[in-house]
Nucleic acid binder design. Sequence first.
DNA 1: TCTATCAAGTTGTACTATACAACCAAAGCG
DNA 2: CGCTTTGGTTGTATAGTACAACTTGATAGA
Lengths: 144, 144
Amino acid sequence: MPHRADSLDTIQRELTAFARRARAAAAQLHPELSLVSYTLLAHLQDQQGCRATDLAAHYLLDKSTVSRQVAALERLGFVERRTDPQDQRVQVLHLTDRGTAVLDQVAASRRTAFEERLADWDEDDLARFASYLLRYNASGSARD
Amino acid sequence: MPHRADSLDTIQRELTAFARRARAAAAQLHPELSLVSYTLLAHLQDQQGCRATDLAAHYLLDKSTVSRQVAALERLGFVERRTDPQDQRVQVLHLTDRGTAVLDQVAASRRTAFEERLADWDEDDLARFASYLLRYNASGSARD
DNA sequence: TCTATCAAGTTGTACTATACAACCAAAGCG
DNA sequence: CGCTTTGGTTGTATAGTACAACTTGATAGA
């Protein structure tokens, strides 16, 4: 059984290695939708629509960045803005049918990739790995 | 106990979330050295020097990208080039003392951040998480 | 041996993601 | 009504990246 320090080093090294490859790998997997766009759309689906400010807060992005990303997604016809009648400043973002379709398709292909990659893991290991990741991400969500 | 499909979804979602935040978080942690620079220097330390082409292959980067990154690191005095006498085309890259110092310092601060973040994990969980990450990254190293 | 090809790196160009700052417009509050 | 806050856009700048064209050195086949 390795020492605490060894495990910490491994975790650091492996997470870093993963982060280093993630963007390129995602771009390769579906040129249609960058990693960022994908997560934004996924969040919209998850939340049944939300404001640009919420996206920025959730993903630690500048509001200008989100503004441009959303503009691009709108240009592609994947999201639409609905001005909140209660507050004219607010534009609630929603997935369009086309956005939903693209997101579902990309999610499916990502899903397939993960399935292949994790094909030889047994159910218990998958469950534990998932719970560790949840626990890791939940701690200090503003860091790493 | 969750189903296989649930675990897969969680893993996908959490790894994606992590990847989304990693770059910005790393930049915040040490403005001196981006995530990419850090991994390049770490690889040089690990390998006791290597060629730019090796870095490109290992990190799935274009050689032009590596060329510029290395040029920047050289400008900062963190790496030096030693032309291979056997093959005049080849420049073997090595950490300078200053590069080693910066790398060690950044590694230490990363280490501290991880330690804090994982402070309340017990040793067994850390070891298992580390081994899962290793196993994950080892499978299909060219993807995600 | 000469030439054609290959390999290592650099440079030109372009694009994307990002941040920060300045700004505008709508709300809300004294 | 004016001041502050909030949601969002736009201007500007930078980093990281890819692709293509090029240079230089190595190498193998005629």
